[in-house]
Amino acid sequence: LEARLEQAAMLKRVVDAIKDLVQDCNFDCNDSGIALQAMDNSHVALVSMMLKSESFSPFRCDRNIALGINLTSLTKVLRAAQGDDILTLKAEDAPDVVNLTFESPESDRLSEYDIKLMDIDQEHLGIPDTEYAATITLPSSEFSRITRDLSALSESVAIECTKEGVKFTCTGDIGNGSVSLRQHTNVENDAKSVDISLTEPVALTFSLKYLVNFCKAAGLSDRVRLCLSNEVPLLVEYGLSNNSYLRFYLAPKIGD
């Protein structure tokens, strides 16, 4: 494997956004790119990352390999990279280590690290293609604000989507709160628009702790997409350039 990223910031942000949810992960490398899929210990959230080969230049992966990496270790090493450094990942066949180099674009500084790999026996879970009843695309900063504000009051949030719009509601010890958004097109800045596509009304309840955690990915994309269907895990997607993405699935709280 040899994969060169123009900006180390991308990988730094991805790892930062997932390291509190999952600890030891396989980075599955093949000629289409680098993928990661991992579930948190309590089986409430699933992280699915895809960094397409087009997001790297160059990208070369001659044989499929799984790089078992501890994210705490990776975070320690990535801290040594500046956001605008050029980052190159390298691994040999049947590797013991993954090699990371950080090149400063302005100086002749080159730093190089090896991280020991782990043997991670991870079961691969199939994610079914789902036709969601409601898809909401909104500014990622707006979604962060809603989850942060409501998490001050309650542990969970009800997300209700109807043709009127989407409503986030919470009930807590000190009182309750809600935020409603309507479909809205910002003609000056499309990134600030709220798009709602609905085939049937949806109402689901989720843990805010996890949603707040997902919002650590907000720096990766101006926009976030929420996909909901009744009694199905919520999909929170941050799209990256070249069709790469960081997706989070969150189990709803159901029944009584």
């Binding site: 579930m39 089986h43 409430v44 691969h124 879970l125 843990s207 199905v232 895990p233 709280k253 009584d256």
Partner: peptide, 14 residues
């Protein structure tokens, strides 16, 4: 109280 869906059971092993 509502119960938390288990994602492991949802995402069937492929």
């Amino acid at each position: 109280a509502p119960f938390q869906m288990d994602l492991y059971n949802y995402f069937i092993k492929s």
